[in-house]
């Protein structure tokens, strides 16, 4: 147990000490984001992430938002388990036809007011997979999209920037 604590102490808080050079932008963005979110969402934004047909690349980068470098929860942004708890749907991937109804139902289940963010090239414009017998293409072909974050996959920083644009 002592080793564990000593490692924690040795590691320190990377979310604050690292950004000095590389992540100052993130820090500024995050704080600005917090202000924006406070105005519209009373200090919290609940995101339900939906993989509608992604290759899993975008999910890896969304996961990264929760690592200690980005620690996105400190800005009042958190991921929730149900669309019924969500303000924002963060949708990745083309919408595979087999996921079309599921996505429509998730959209219906999300209470108003709600926003939809399409994250990644597939979700924003169809990317590598486009429209076919198996794919509906971009998310906007299935549900209304409020914001698009490009990238294959978008970096965690791009995702934070995108969230800022929403507010």
């Amino acid at each position: 147990m002592l080793r564990l604590f000593s490692k924690i102490i040795k590691t320190g808080v990377v979310s604050e000490s690292i950004p000095v050079v590389q992540d100052d932008e993130l820090e500024a963005l995050g704080i600005e984001l917090k202000n924006q979110i406070s105005k519209k969402f009373s200090g919290s934004i609940a995101i339900r992430q939906v993989d509608a047909g992604s290759c899993n690349g975008c999910e890896l980068e969304i996961h990264a938002l929760n690592n200690p470098y980005y620690a996105i929860e400190r800005f009042g942004i958190h991921f929730v388990a149900s669309p019924r708890h969500a303000d924002v749907l963060l949708v990745t991937g083309v919408v595979s036809r087999h996921m079309q109804t599921a996505l429509l139902r998730v959209y219906e289940a999300t209470p108003n007011p709600k926003w939809v963010i399409a994250a990644g090239d597939c979700a924003t414009c169809g990317g590598e997979f486009g429209v076919s017998y198996a794919s509906c293409g971009a998310v906007a072909n299935v549900i209304p999209v409020d914001l698009k974050i490009a990238g294959c996959p978008p970096t965690p920083l791009a995702l934070v920037q995108g969230l800022l644009a929403l507010c």
Partner: peptide, 21 residues
Amino acid sequence: GYVHKGIEKLAEGKTAQELIR
């Protein structure tokens, strides 16, 4: 099968370099 995107069908007709992507 929920994320079936038709990869095998999409590959047909691509050039070698396009396939890598």
